[in-house]
């Protein structure tokens, strides 16, 4: 598939607020990005016309009940089968922040046995309260995650987070088993690290929210659904990075671009 033919669908619900900058990133890569209201997608049932599906960041429906819980249930109920088919066909789904919360709430992530009926993980309230700050994450995927293939293994990426509920948790009685499966399936994509590249080990604020095992992002076993708390779209251009003025000339791009580039390349190659 050629780049300019690729169509990315950025769904938005009331309260979604990172759609414009996410669309800007895809457009910069030469992809057609369309921001469409979730009600319209429900009405028109045209999900499968698209090659990329993105759930952008925000506070869908005010994040009442739990972050993204309402939107996730609504999506399941209204377009559940379409979503499952989209995923089963290997098309890429990217969930950023609120989008990650949605993918967990809807059972697509971690999705050990395909989509789960109930959430298998949680993005709980931060131990540190709401935080907006730049963090560093290390890329751990050994190649399974199709949406980060352009990111070198073990590379440390700088991106900002901005959320009150992003503390990744598994049920306590299953967390060791689930973690083993994440590693076995190569589903662990990003972990928070310290400036020297070593894992944050829960230390605030390198791990900004208290996430268990410093987990910042995971993918499904098939590697085509990725959810992450940091915002790659806010680290897309060099002038968005926190220390660009320290260079004589600002860098053209930030680390976030690698993720969007991976998504687009994956579609180019596969379809």
């Amino acid at each position: 598939m050629r780049r300019h033919e690729i169509r990315a669908l950025l769904m938005r619900a009331p309260g979604t607020n990172c759609d414009a900058e996410t669309a800007r990133a895809f457009r910069d890569l030469g992809v057609r990005a369309e921001v469409v209201h979730t009600q319209r997608v429900f009405r028109e049932r045209n999900l499968l016309d698209y090659d990329i599906l993105v759930f952008p960041g925000g506070f869908s429906y005010g994040d009442y009940v739990r972050s993204a819980a309402i939107w996730a249930k609504e999506c399941e109920y209204r377009i559940g089968p379409d979503l499952e088919r989209f995923v089963d066909e290997g098309r890429p789904v990217l969930g950023i922040c609120n989008g990650f919360q949605l993918l967990v709430e809807a059972g697509f992530l971690p999705g050990f046995e395909g989509r789960s009926r109930y959430p298998e993980a949680a993005l709980a309230n931060n131990t540190t309260g709401y935080q907006c700050r730049w963090v560093r994450v290390r890329h751990l995927s050994r190649g399974n995650c199709a949406l980060t293939r352009e990111v070198p293994r073990d590379a440390v990426l700088a991106m900002p987070i901005a959320h009150g509920e992003g503390r990744f948790l598994f049920p306590r009685d299953r967390q060791d088993e689930y973690l083993r499966r994440l590693y076995e399936n190569d589903q662990l994509v990003f972990r928070y690290v310290k400036p020297d590249g070593s894992f944050a080990d829960g230390e605030a604020f390198h791990n900004p929210n208290g996430a268990w095992h410093d987990i910042a992002g995971i993918c499904n076993p098939a590697g085509n659904v990725l959810g992450l708390m940091p915002h790659p779209e806010r680290a897309y251009f060099g002038w968005l990075t926190p220390d660009w003025t320290r260079r004589e000339k600002p860098p053209e791009y930030g680390d976030g671009r690698l993720i969007f580039e991976s998504v687009v390349r994956y579609v180019e190659r596969r379809f």
Partner: peptide, 16 residues
Amino acid sequence: VVRRYDHEVKGQTVVK
């Protein structure tokens, strides 16, 4: 105080 507020959303903040 500052970290309680999202100062990056919209991706336009050049000097934070």
